[in-house]
Design a protein around this nucleic acid. Structure first.
Lengths: 374, 374
DNA sequence: TCCGCGTGCTGAACCGATTCAACAATCTTC
DNA sequence: GAAGATTGTTGAATCGGTTCAGCACGCGGA
């Protein structure tokens, strides 16, 4: 009878013979083996392993030689159990359908893994599904000693659980974002400067009728871009109407929808600025479907500079974000925090515009007052 | 003098100021605490935790209540140390520049993570760089008790290290591939059937001059597709010349290059079949640059059906691969193997063609003999 | 009444490392 | 030459679980 309905942890129903004759690691060489082979105590071997300076040069090399001869490899479960650290970091992805397949997150993760490995850390992958958070598994990760720290990707201000990460007990760092919901460490791209470059460029090309395909307002980077958009257009003497802006949800479909909405109210739009490449690509796809020519009829510009963006038709003008560097630096700072760093982390990495084929001079270099559509 | 390089224990060391005062987990509730609070032995608590049927219903619920009251969470380092399993799986990515940002791998990982989490497993991310393999870190992962098993992504026949994974000692499973270099478990898409559908479709549209943009010959799936291509074209009475086939390295750039090469020898190509979507997209980009119209002048067809493929211009006709299902099933089978499965795993998941806008009837439904160019 | 057996629980060994207190041997220093 | 400091090593406790052998108890059968 199997009354055990509840998901029991690493369990196997015991008491039953003739079962689970699974993978059985043959007993490996351990500290004691090395100690006796080298005629020293286990304490000595351990200290050699950790390069403790109190061990003499002679003993050190002798023990090390024995370790090599026996092919000794420390059991890291035992190491972590008795030491303070696991040397594992978790990467949290947001609860989005294709989060893993999203090149934006991929580039971040790439930077993270590279740096983490170089520093002797392993990376554990987690997706922050609602159930996961509700069961407080994000803290369990620490409490049960899975990880030393967490890198948070794709966060925003509605993520209440961000408040749970107390810096000294549950070290966490926000990657490429700065949610106001909690006062956490962060490392991110300079979206403001990127947006400034985009708008300077578009305005210089003669564009005034510029639509903004943005992300949700709860995402700090989306707000930043929007703020720059509004101030720059105002500065150029353009009155901003709400219908010139639409939420594209950071997806291709969303980008296309947002583009359609804006065009519906403003058929004379001459350029679109999108909050990321996926939305820009979605918009371009729609425009192509509608028979509009990018960039002759309409210019489109994105954010991210995914590898991919150079290969759509036409190739996409976009703001290059140093995502792998962000990932690497985030990893560095998180590890510092784990080892006792006190000062908060607030890093901003610079961005630059990459001009390709999706942008061109505005048809007729417009001037001055634009009459509001409707 | 900073003799204290070694991290100090979780105890408050007031003695020495100014040193690694890092993250300090406050002593958590442990088995002994629960045992004494419930007035039973630690053995009993452990057995409750593992749903051991030898514990009476009464004791079970009583202990469980105490655990809840104290907020007890088992330390999984201790659990894994004394049990046989870590409940962690590693995902190996190949040594490619943008491996993490590649949506193909992303979809696989997505399926893997989902299933793994549902089964109580954690996922660890590794990239199989040459140095990593040379230092035998892929085995160290087992020897040092990091993981119970490994899922191998992006493998091919030059990966000699695949031979190292002895099924009973180092459980590993190849995902969406079947390298002949080692006789390992695998779960993959039915590329053969996919290729058959592609060629039937193209031939039915009247295409005869079909170029193949393939991957490297050491990759089994690339060989499979090529084999089908050759036999189907032969069957349609088309003589195959080497110059009709080129290696696109599974990248956009490679796809573009391969496309250029083939066109150089065969300017009258009317269709391209690519081994994945990225190469197809690269080819389409080149064709766009050359002023050729897809699909009017040339049809292009891919493999993968990445989310993305629906949003390039024109949207891409491609073979849908059930990558998340492959990932999920791979995870299932690997876990079976870890727990003692004896029979080899050889799974094939079915694929189907998704027709979009990058394919159309051949200009002039060609017939019979094609004179070899050059 | 005695034996054997199944049930429910316990004590203690064990997994494999880290680290502290203690100590012996050698080196300073006066 | 004795006291004190330094250097190098060790035994034992500890981290927090799992598991096995064994014990107490109640019960049915001979």
């Amino acid at each position: 009878m199997r009354q055990a309905d509840e998901p029991n942890p690493p369990v196997r129903a015991d008491a039953d013979p003739a079962e689970d004759v699974g993978f059985r690691p043959k007993r490996a060489v351990n500290l004691r083996d090395v100690a006796s082979a080298a005629s020293v105590s286990v304490a000595t071997v351990s200290m050699v392993l950790n390069n403790n300076p109190r061990i003499s040069r002679a003993t050190h090399t002798r023990v090390q030689r024995v370790m090599e001869k026996l092919g000794y490899q420390p059991n890291r479960l035992a190491q972590s159990l008795s030491s303070k650290y696991t040397n594992v970091l978790a990467v949290f992805l947001p609860d989005l359908r294709h989060a893993f397949a999203d090149a934006y997150f991929g580039e971040l993760i790439s930077g993270i893994c590279d740096r983490a490995n170089r520093l002797g850390y392993k990376i554990m992958l987690e997706q922050a599904k609602p159930a996961f958070i509700k069961e407080r598994k994000h803290l369990e990760l620490f409490d049960r000693r899975f990880v030393d720290g967490i890198l948070l990707l794709g966060t925003h201000d509605l993520h209440e659980h961000l408040k749970d990460f107390d810096p000294t007990t549950y070290p966490a760092l926000v990657v490429d974002n700065n949610p106001v919901v909690a006062d956490l460490d962060y490392v991110m791209c300079d979206y403001e400067s990127g947006a400034v470059q985009v708008l300077n460029y578009l305005i210089q090309l003669g564009h005034r009728k510029i639509g903004l395909i943005t992300g949700a307002a709860e995402i700090s980077t989306a707000r930043t871009v929007r703020k720059v958009y509004e101030s720059k257009l105002n500065q150029a003497g353009v009155e901003i109407i709400d219908t010139m802006i639409a939420d594209g949800k950071f997806t291709e479909e969303g980008g296309a929808d947002a583009c359609r909405q804006i065009l519906h109210h403003h058929p004379d739009m001459s350029a679109f600025m999108a909050g990321n490449d996926k939305m820009a690509i979605g918009a371009m796809h729609l425009l192509h479907r509608m028979g509009k020519d990018v960039p002759k009829d309409i210019s489109v510009i994105g954010f991210d500079d995914l590898h991919h963006a150079a290969f759509v038709n036409p190739s996409l003008t976009t703001v290059h974000l140093p995502l792998d560097q962000v990932g690497a630096m985030a990893t560095d700072r998180l590890i510092e925090r784990i080892h006792g760093r006190r000062e908060p982390v607030r890093e901003l990495l610079s961005t630059h515009l990459v001009v390709r084929d999706s942008t061109a001079m505005a048809r007729n270099s417009v001037r001055g007052e634009s009459e509001s559509a409707d």
